[in-house]
Write a protein that binds this DNA or RNA. Structure first.
Length: 244
DNA sequence: TCATTAAATTGTT
DNA sequence: AACAATTTAATGA
């Protein structure tokens, strides 16, 4: 059962720390915040479950408190295409919440994750009453537009190293995912699922990126050292091939 | 707190 | 896909 259907039963209140990590909560006036906090729910979701499914009516606007989600879509042939990952601090679904439509994507956890939900009615109430909230949403929509344009470029990249680099750069986006910070908690296997490459190839790409100084590979995560380089660096074809 | 063991993740072929 | 090496997490004295 998707999380958006079962959030009612599985919900619990957010801790003070979890509330503090929500990027838009600080932009609200006291009475607005009071209303938002009263409605916010949090639930745990595991791999294989759905946070929300394509076609289901949108009931919540979601945010990742902890963990890692993937956003995907099924085409008419039953194949699944992954668009992007959603790391901590990311909020999504505002487009469909705005129009009160059905979800256009599937959202599934790549590992055990904590997902917060704000009911669409409260979402709309905030839109009607809070300037700060409107500014956040506008900023978010604008930033995501840039992300999707970048995603189209990534799709046309044949070089796996560049695909990994660009995909990582989007996950490190400080505006969309302020919860990530310097280190992104992600395993190489999880990253492989996201970019659609084998774990071996991802490992090779990460090693190359680390050699170039744009990231550092750590156990269970990655540290970004040079985000602009990740976004734009072009690799020469023969950087790390061993000579014959 | 420390040592031991299991589990997870990474590096390599 | 398989394997070894490394790191973390869990357990109990």
């Amino acid at each position: 059962m998707p999380l958006d259907s079962s959030l009612h039963q599985r919900r619990r209140a957010l801790t003070a720390g979890e509330l503090d990590a929500i990027p838009w909560i600080h932009l609200l006036a006291p009475q607005e915040r009071e209303r938002a906090v009263a409605d916010l729910k949090i639930a745990e979701a595991s791999p294989g479950e759905y946070v929300c499914r394509m076609g289901r009516p949108a009931t919540y606007w979601f945010g990742v408190v902890d963990g890692l989600l993937k956003m995907s879509s099924d085409n008419e042939h039953g194949q699944t295409m992954t668009f992007t990952g959603v790391p901590p601090g990311g909020w999504f679904g505002e487009g469909t919440a705005l129009k009160r439509e059905a979800y256009r994507y599937n959202i599934q956890p790549l590992r055990n994750s904590h997902v917060a939900g704000l009911h669409v009615d409260t979402f709309h109430w905030l839109l009607d009453h809070s300037i700060g909230f409107n500014r956040f949403i506008m900023n978010q929509l604008n930033e995501r537009l840039g992300q999707f344009i970048a995603a189209r470029e990534i799709d046309r990249m044949t070089n796996p190293d560049i695909r990994v680099a660009r995909s990582l750069a989007t996950l490190f986006n400080p505006v969309l995912y302020p919860g990530v910070g310097e280190v992104l908690r992600i395993t190489q296997q999880e990253l492989a699922y996201l970019v659609g490459l084998s774990r071996q190839r991802v490992n090779e790409a990460l090693t190359t990126l680390a050699e170039q100084g744009s990231i550092r590979v750590e156990y269970g995560g990655l540290r970004v050292l040079d985000l602009p380089a990740l976004r734009s660096h072009v690799f020469s074809k023969e950087t790390s091939r061993k000579p014959a």
